[in-house]
Computed example of a mutant assay.
Amino acid sequence: MVTIKDIAEAAEVSTATVSRVINNKGNVSAAKEKIIKQKIKELGYYKNKKKKSSQPGIKDVAQAAEVSTATVSRVINGDAYVSEEVKEKVLDSIKSLGYTPNVNARNLRKKQTNLIGVIIPDILNTVFGRTLRAIEKIADQNNLDLLIFNYASKYSRLENFFNILERRRADGLIFISGEYNKKEEELIKNFDLPLIQIFRDRNHENLTIPNLNINNYQMAYEVVNLLYKNNYRKIAFISGSPLEEHKSSRLLAYEKAMTDLDLEIKEGFVQKGEYDLDSGYQALKRIIENYSVPEAVFAANDEMALGAMRYAQDINLKIPEDIALIGIDNIDISKDSVPELSTVDQPYFEIGKKSVELLLRLIKGQKLEKDEYLFEHQILLRESV
């Protein structure tokens, strides 16, 4: 095959000069250009033009099916976590476009690195921290390395971490999350790695990605009924989620239980907190200063319940004689408070352990039997009720 170097030697010029003539770049004298073109013709040189491939790609399929490339990838790989309707749209688009998956690229991607990503909203949160310790222990037993990211609701950093995982060829991801978040959902939809979620409130979510949690709705419903059985009627609720759009399962269950028990939800008796001590303190303060004193307060986590307890004690309310309090999570300080806080215990270690086991199955290409794994909770009645 004739090369640019052959032309340069025949015309007694540099390869750069030949290249400029071939690519019509100019800056070559007319005499030299004439000689070079003559040698090109004599030697039979043909420029190797790269033809744009007419073969459709995965982006073309995604665009035609109106889904993300990650969804197309899941369909191609036989992932069970795609609805039949979406799966049919993708398969129809693949057929109509004549798309053929790149087997070599898929095989390269399947080469395991034993690296797993873990995303945690707040590493200082007791619940998330306990779960992370379980994940670390089981990962170590399976010779897995963890790349842990504490994103603190900074979604631009979260997207960047997803990109880092893909560049590092991580085998999969465990996403410790919580209540509904539209930005998180959009990122997850386009994430093309095996993925397990923990503590995701699925009440408003259309995703079918495997999730591990307790049954928050059932748990909250049981708590309200237990307070009722203990003769409490004026029951307030401190939520960590929005009070209108995208209500949490816990808030919805509180409202349903109150309705089923024919109990009135008093004006101002549902307040929003931020899952910390101060927001619980301020929530109960707003209820009492602006409305009335509840007989019982059910908080969406222990920290808000303990904050409410502190306010009740600051205004000399006796617990549980004047006001009862119950939280969720059974954090360590809940049993060290005075009085001891009633709460709901969750099996954090079992949830963390199971998340690693399920992710390993997905990495191996195995299908899971369901997309929702619910664990048992336990209501612990202590001195505050």
Rank of each mutant, 00 (worst) to 15 (best):
K89S: 00
V90N: 01
V90L: 05
V90R: 06
V90A: 04
L91E: 12
L91N: 07
D92L: 07
D92Y: 03
D92P: 00
D92S: 11
D92R: 07
S93P: 12
S93G: 02
S93V: 01
S93E: 02
I94A: 01
I94K: 01
I94Q: 03
I94P: 10
I94F: 05
I94G: 01
K95D: 15
K95W: 07
K95T: 15
L97A: 04
L97V: 03
L97T: 00
L97M: 03
G98H: 02
G98A: 04
G98L: 04
G98S: 02
G98K: 06
G98P: 10
G98Y: 02
G98I: 11
Y99G: 06
Y99P: 12
Y99F: 14
Y99T: 07
T100Y: 06
T100W: 01
T100E: 08
T100N: 06
P101Q: 07
P101H: 04
P101C: 09
P101N: 01
N102E: 08
N102K: 11
N102M: 09
V103A: 07
V103H: 05
V103F: 06
V103Q: 10
V103C: 00
N104Q: 08
N104K: 11
A105T: 09
A105K: 09
A105P: 11
R106V: 03
R106N: 05
R106A: 08
N107M: 12
N107E: 13
N107L: 12
N107Y: 10
N107S: 12
L108W: 12
L108T: 13
L108A: 06
L108D: 13
L108M: 14
L108Y: 14
L108P: 14
R109H: 15
R109S: 15
R109G: 13
R109Y: 15
R109M: 15
R109E: 15
R109C: 12
R109K: 15
K110W: 03
K110T: 12
K110Y: 09
K111A: 08
K111V: 15
Q112R: 11
Q112M: 06
Q112K: 11
Q112G: 02
T113Y: 11
T113C: 11
T113P: 11
T113L: 06
T113G: 12
T113Q: 10
N114A: 02
N114R: 05
N114P: 04
N114G: 02
N114W: 01
N114D: 05
N114F: 03
N114V: 00
N114K: 10
L115R: 13
L115E: 02
L115C: 02
L115A: 03
I116N: 02
I116M: 04
I116Q: 00
I116W: 00
I116P: 09
I116A: 03
G117V: 12
G117N: 11
G117W: 06
G117F: 13
G117T: 03
G117S: 08
V118P: 13
V118Y: 11
V118T: 08
V118N: 05
I119Q: 08
I119D: 06
I119C: 15
I119N: 13
I120F: 12
I120H: 10
I120W: 13
P121D: 06
P121T: 04
P121H: 04
P121E: 03
D122G: 05
D122T: 04
D122W: 09
D122N: 11
D122Y: 08
I123Q: 09
I123L: 14
I123K: 10
I123S: 01
L124V: 07
L124E: 14
L124R: 14
L124M: 14
L124F: 14
L124S: 14
